[in-house]
C-alpha cells in the first residue's frame, strides 16, 4: 500500500482512504465514479464534499460509510480496514458507528416522530424505555419536542429532515454521512440543518462528511473538498488546488 496522508497533530483521523477507485459499467458504458482518492477526514470536523452531479459524491459516501464496496483501494475507518471485513461485520460497523442522513429522509411513513427514532434503536438492542428517552431528547434537540406523534406526511420537508437528523444523532454515531440533506429545503431551513449538523460534530466529536452543492452550507463548514470526475480537485485545508493524485 502507498503511504497514507500524514495526520495533523491536533485532530484525529476518523477515516483515511488510500487509492480508492470505483468503476461502473463496461465498454462504452464504463464510468469512473471514484479515481484513486486518498484523503483523511477528522473527528469533530464538518467536511463538505462539493461537485457537479455525477462527479462521484454519492459513491464516496457509499464507500466510506460501508454501504458499497470500492473496486480498489482501502478505507481505514476508526483504525480498521473496513472492506476487508465480512458483510455481517460491516453491517455491525454501520450499526455501531455510522449515522446517515439521506436526501429524502428515509423515514418510516407509518411511524410518528418519536417512534421513528426509538424503533430503530430497539432493533439495535436498546430497551424500549431507553429508546424512548433517547428519542425524546433527540426530538427536543432538533426543536420538535411537540411533534412526537406526527407522521412524515403530516410534517414539512424541513421538519422531516430534522427528524432524520435526530434519528441519526440519537444513537450517537462517530461517523456521520449526509447526502444532499438540504437540497429539498428553502434557505432558512437549509441553514438550520447545517447549524444542527455542525453542533452535532462539536458535541459528540463526530466526523461529518456532507455531500452538497448547496452554497449556503459553506459558511458552516470546517473544511471543503471539491470532486470532479471521481477525483478530489481541491481541499480548503491545503488552501490550494490538489495536485493530480497520481
Amino acid at each position: 500500500m502507498t503511504s497514507l496522508a500524514k495526520q495533523s497533530p491536533t485532530t484525529v483521523a476518523a477515516i483515511q482512504t488510500c487509492g480508492l477507485g470505483k468503476v461502473f459499467g463496461e465498454g462504452r458504458q464504463r464510468v469512473i465514479a471514484l479515481d484513486d482518492v486518498s484523503i483523511e477526514l477528522c473527528s469533530g470536523q464538518m467536511t463538505l464534499l462539493m461537485g457537479p452531479s455525477g462527479s462521484g459524491k454519492s459513491s464516496m459516501i457509499a464507500a466510506l460509510g460501508g454501504l458499497q464496496a470500492p473496486d480498489t483501494g482501502q478505507v481505514i475507518a476508526l483504525g480498521e480496514d473496513l472492506w476487508s471485513r465480512s458483510s455481517r461485520k460491516i453491517t455491525r460497523f454501520r450499526r455501531d458507528h455510522c449515522g446517515f442522513v439521506f436526501q429524502s429522509g428515509g423515514l418510516f411513513p407509518a411511524l410518528g416522530a418519536r417512534d421513528q427514532i426509538a424503533l430503530p434503536l430497539t432493533f439495535l438492542g436498546w430497551s424500549a424505555a431507553e429508546a424512548k428517552r433517547a428519542a425524546c431528547e433527540a426530538l427536543d434537540w432538533v426543536g420538535l419536542a411537540d411533534r412526537q406523534d406526527s407522521r412524515p406526511s403530516e410534517m414539512s420537508g424541513g421538519q422531516n429532515q430534522r427528524i432524520a437528523i435526530a434519528r441519526m444523532l440519537a444513537k450517537k454515531p462517530t461517523l456521520i454521512f449526509c447526502d444532499e440533506p438540504t437540497s429539498a429545503l428553502d434557505g432558512k431551513n437549509g441553514a438550520n440543518i447545517a447549524e444542527l449538523l455542525k453542533q452535532a460534530a462539536a458535541r459528540h466529536n463526530a466526523m461529518i462528511l456532507c455531500v452538497t452543492h448547496d452554497e449556503r452550507l459553506v459558511p458552516h463548514a470546517d473544511r471543503i473538498l471539491h470532486i470532479e470526475d471521481g477525483r478530489i480537485t481541491s481541499d480548503s485545508e491545503e488552501d490550494k488546488p490538489y495536485a493530480a493524485n497520481r
Binding site: 455491525r92 450499526r95 446517515f100 439495535l124
Partner: peptide, 16 residues
C-alpha cells in the same frame, strides 16, 4: 422497499 433499505443502512440486522 425504501423502508427496508433504510433499515439496512442503519445497520439493523437482517433478521429484524
Amino acid at each position: 422497499s425504501q423502508q427496508f433499505a433504510t433499515m439496512r443502512a442503519l445497520g439493523i440486522p437482517s433478521r429484524h
